[in-house]
């Protein structure tokens, strides 16, 4: 092996770690070049949604299940944190963790009966769950503030410093997002991740190989709900105000769109999809009226051309090209 080959091999071997490191560096220095709070606010929003879509992608993309109700879990996280901190005066971090655990427990209780279901039954159950949560947020106004929302949520604080502007929030949300991203990348490369991918493609075979299908599904479901809840809590502290309309089934569909566009079964794809959907209204401002149509069109076109989503589809295509070229070179 020449020195160059060695370096290339090293890069290939550690590609995931290196990419994560590079992303961390870029984001660490980003505020030096971009100090406009408006734009930082947008990248913060991407970070928040990313935490949610990473979890959702594990459930939809890797495990091949369907959820059209994850905004319900985000809502539980957001309102849970809001109530515990604003009404009961808890520490926001403690509230975030406790709420996430409770949401995980709720997901476990919902998941055990639901995940026996497949396909459209699961779609319906998750939609129903979201509608139930949404209606309660609107109607139970004594606790939730009703349709006009819940205001006065305290910001997060780190070592006594309140995280009350976009710049500070940037340095809280992105380290968290990158940690979750790394854990997700670990998970999908582990035996458990392989099991999830296997059960998504052939449940009978996966089970015959020793994968306990129902348990694996429930594990990812709970994990994705916990991540959604964490995203919701951070959302609440970031804006210090929440209202039910941020958590309707349309939000769930938007989350699914982020995951699907980026790519089923590509953690990096989630970053791309989330960024795209959050950024699009900013750059397509004068298209405001056409926003829905454009969202829908992207989803439809991507799925028609690359059924596994854009990033996954391109990745698979590139991989196949390389393999074919190598094959020809060998013969």
């Amino acid at each position: 092996m020449s020195a160059k080959d060695k370096i290339l091999y090293f890069i290939w071997l550690h590609r995931t770690g290196l990419t994560v490191g590079a992303l961390g560096l870029v984001l660490g220095f980003y505020p030096l070049f971009q100090d406009n709070p408006y734009f930082l606010g947008i990248s913060n929003l991407i970070g928040i949604y990313l935490i949610v879509t990473i979890g959702l992608n594990l459930f939809i993309g890797y495990a091949g299940q369907i959820s059209l109700g994850h905004a319900g879990f985000v809502a539980l996280g957001a309102y849970g944190s809001a109530i515990l901190t604003a009404d009961l005066g808890w520490n926001p971090w403690l509230a975030l963790i406790i709420v996430a655990l409770l949401v995980g427990l709720a997901a476990l209780l919902v998941g055990i009966p639901t995940l026996r279901l497949s396909g459209h039954y699961l779609a319906m159950a998750t939609l129903g769950f979201n509608i139930v949560i949404y209606t309660i947020l609107i109607q139970w106004d004594k606790i939730t503030g009703g349709p006009s929302g819940f205001a006065g949520i305290p910001p997060l604080s780190v070592f006594g410093m309140p995280i009350d502007d976009e710049l500070r929030f940037h340095y809280v949300i992105w380290p968290l997002a990158i940690i979750f991203l790394t854990l997700a990348l670990n998970l999908v490369r582990s035996g458990l991740g392989l099991g999830l991918a296997a059960l998504a493609q052939n449940e009978t075979a996966a089970s015959a190989l020793g994968i306990k299908v129902s348990r694996a599904k429930i594990q990812v479901f709970v994990l994705s709900a916990v991540l959604a809840s964490v995203g919701g809590s951070l959302f609440a502290h970031c804006f210090t105000f929440v209202n039910p309309h941020s958590f309707s089934i349309f939000t769930s569909l938007e989350l699914v769109t982020m995951v699907v566009i980026g790519g089923l079964g590509s953690v990096w794809g989630s970053l791309f999809g989330t960024a795209l959907i959050v950024l699009m209204p900013e750059y397509l401002e004068f298209f405001e009226t056409y926003k829905d149509i454009i969202h829908g069109l992207i989803l439809v076109v991507v799925l028609t051309v690359f059924p596994q989503g854009l990033i996954s589809g391109l990745r698979d295509m590139a991989r196949l090209k390389i393999l074919q070229r190598r094959d020809i070179a060998q013969h």
């Binding site: 459209h120 769109t257 149509i293 969202h295 829908g296 069109l297 989803l299 439809v300 799925l303 028609t304």
Partner: peptide, 20 residues
Amino acid sequence: LVLIFLTIGLSIILRGIMKI
């Protein structure tokens, strides 16, 4: 799964068109 997502995309488009 993909086909269900496809109809969701189509549904978003239809609603967008009707809204306009």
